[in-house]
């Protein structure tokens, strides 16, 4: 079993009267891809944002290699984040945005420009971001997440808005990174895609981590052969449990 890269214990977050996360326990194993799945509003994005420090949890711990990260800043140099919505300052060019990230992160990281090459972004990076199509912006977004060869990649709906070819390129990249020992947390609404990428699954429901384990384990306990069916079964059971 790989060692835990991220260990989340008893994580809770409340927005007004809504418990977005309640006592979430979750382990992300080093060198593996974990899919965060669950219905809308289950707390997936809040969970991701807590790991990034964008959201400040009310209670609980998040450890990265055994070290607390809540309230810290420097640990984010080890993380590459691809947000769900790719909206950038419209008068900057992609190249300027990348230069900014380099400035902010400082020297040291080995640059990985593979996605810029594969997506053929060189020319697009010289134009202001406002003239780029949504798909191209999403490619820039992906290229920036992988650029600094981070140990941990956090991808929120990475293939949303990408054409099939670009989406395949991105998925190949994710698998290649996994092969190189990188850890990945990924959310998606497309279960087939996650099945291709992930070995582990965290199933979120109403702010709780209802299941955390391997993909095979999830299929076994739900007696289903695909992730989609397995998650659907979990959701039905979950709702039944919630209603009871």
């Amino acid at each position: 079993m790989n060692k835990a890269m991220i260990q989340i214990t008893d994580l809770s977050k409340r927005f007004g009267a809504l418990d977005v996360l309640s006592s979430v326990d979750l382990v992300v194993r080093s060198g593996r891809v974990i899919a965060i799945v669950g219905p809308n509003g289950a707390g997936k994005t809040t969970l991701i944002k807590s790991v990034l420090g964008l959201t400040r949890p009310d209670a609980g711990h998040i450890l990265l290699d055994g070290v607390n990260v809540i309230g810290g800043d420097a640990y984010r140099s080890r993380i590459g984040y691809m947000p769900q919505i790719a909206r950038f300052p419209e008068n900057l060019t992609g190249a300027e945005l990348i230069a900014m990230l380099k400035d902010l992160r400082g020297p040291g990281a080995q640059l990985d420009t593979e996605l810029i090459d594969c997506f053929a972004l060189e020319e697009a990076l010289q134009k202001p971001l406002r003239v780029l199509s949504g798909g191209t912006r999403q490619k820039v977004n992906a290229a920036m997440a992988f650029l600094f060869s981070p140990e941990l990649l956090i991808l929120d709906e990475p293939t949303a808005g990408l054409d099939p070819l670009s989406s395949s390129i991105l998925k190949d990249k994710i698998l290649a990174e996994r092969g190189a020992g990188k850890t990945v947390m990924v959310t998606s609404h497309i279960m087939n895609e996650l099945e291709e990428l992930a070995e582990d699954v965290a199933f979120m429901l109403e702010g709780r981590a209802a299941f955390v384990g391997t993909l095979d384990e999830l299929k076994r306990i739900t007696s289903q052969i695909t992730l989609e069916r397995a998650v659907a079964t979990m959701m039905t059971r979950g709702w039944v449990k919630a209603a009871a």
């Binding site: 964008l54 990230l101 902010l104």
Partner: peptide
């Protein structure tokens, strides 16, 4: 309008 940009900044080690 810079909301997502600010999130991108804060996801860096700053």
């Amino acid at each position: 309008n810079a909301r997502e940009f600010i999130e991108l900044l804060l996801a860096q080690p700053v």
